[in-house]
């Protein structure tokens, strides 16, 4: 058995403070195990979201010693014996209770995005797609919606521009649609005007915290920004479009 000191933020939408807990844990336990033990033995009313306990559902996002993480994938023994493990809710979204925050804003953003619109099949022929093309979409599909990227995005976290920018998670969602080999919907004007792609200044904080190691900035946001630039700011392409009558 190993002893560790935990400092957990307790409170609600009106405010709160850190409370100290000391517990004994087994080797191999993750922070979520520790929190559940504290909940079972010392604080039955500790507000906590969790589900799969295997890094797949994205429920247990929180800030552990200042780093946004999934509590279920963070080994307690990775922290030094004499250290204190400080746990607080993600900052970008309003607190409901203790470590539980109100994530509903994210689900509203998802609804704003025009859905997948596949090209029509000719005479019922089957689609053919190359793995190379599907790879890009599959990478974005790894997203488990833990919203840690949304939590660290400066535009949402510090500048509080939730009304201007949909955040990295939904840039990835947009990229997964725009890069889908079968999709025909044009979302580029909306990406610029409504979803605020220009706000992202590519600091890559989102990529750094992604538990699924999605290259959010390099593979998702930058290519999408490039498409916006090509459409709206490239003078050569603009001329080409004037003469050819092409939309894209």
């Amino acid at each position: 058995m190993i002893e560790r000191n935990f400092k957990i933020w307790r409170g609600n939408s009106k405010g709160g403070d850190f409370v100290n807990y000391k517990i004994s844990i087994d080797e191999g336990m993750v922070v979520l195990d520790a929190l559940k033990l504290i909940q079972a033995d010392q604080a039955n009313d500790l507000g906590l979201r969790w589900n799969c306990k295997a890094g797949k559902c994205g429920s247990c996002s929180m800030e552990i010693n200042g780093k946004p993480k999934l509590a279920c994938m963070d080994r307690v023994t990775d922290y030094k014996e004499d250290s204190q493990i400080t746990v607080r809710p993600v900052k970008t979204f309003p607190v409901i209770k203790d470590l539980v925050t109100d994530l509903s804003w994210n689900y509203e953003q998802n609804k704003r995005i025009p859905p997948f619109k596949p090209k029509p099949r000719e005479n019922g022929a089957k689609y053919r797609m190359q793995q190379e093309d599907v790879d890009r979409v599959q990478e974005f599909r790894k997203c488990i919606e833990c919203y840690l990227c949304q939590n660290v995005c400066h535009i949402l976290r510090d500048q509080e521009k939730k009304n201007k920018f949909v955040g990295p998670r939904f840039m990835i969602r947009l990229a997964s649609l725009e890069m889908h080999p079968l999709d025909t919907e044009d979302r580029i004007p909306a990406i610029k005007n409504e979803y605020g792609s220009g706000y992202c200044n590519i600091t890559k904080c989102c990529t750094e915290v992604c538990p699924e190691s999605i290259k959010i900035t390099d593979n998702g946001i930058i290519p999408i920004k490039e498409r916006v630039v090509d459409r709206f700011y490239d003078p050569v392409l603009k001329l080409f479009r004037v003469f050819s009558g092409s939309k894209k």
């Binding site: 997948f116 596949p118 089957k126 053919r128 797609m129 190359q130 793995q131 599907v134 979409v137 599959q138 599909r141 649609l177 889908h180 079968l182 999709d183």
Partner: peptide, 12 residues
């Protein structure tokens, strides 16, 4: 519906 299944070399 848009589900990206993995592909064979012929794209199936």
């Amino acid at each position: 519906m848009g589900m990206p299944f993995s592909r064979t070399p012929e794209g199936k």
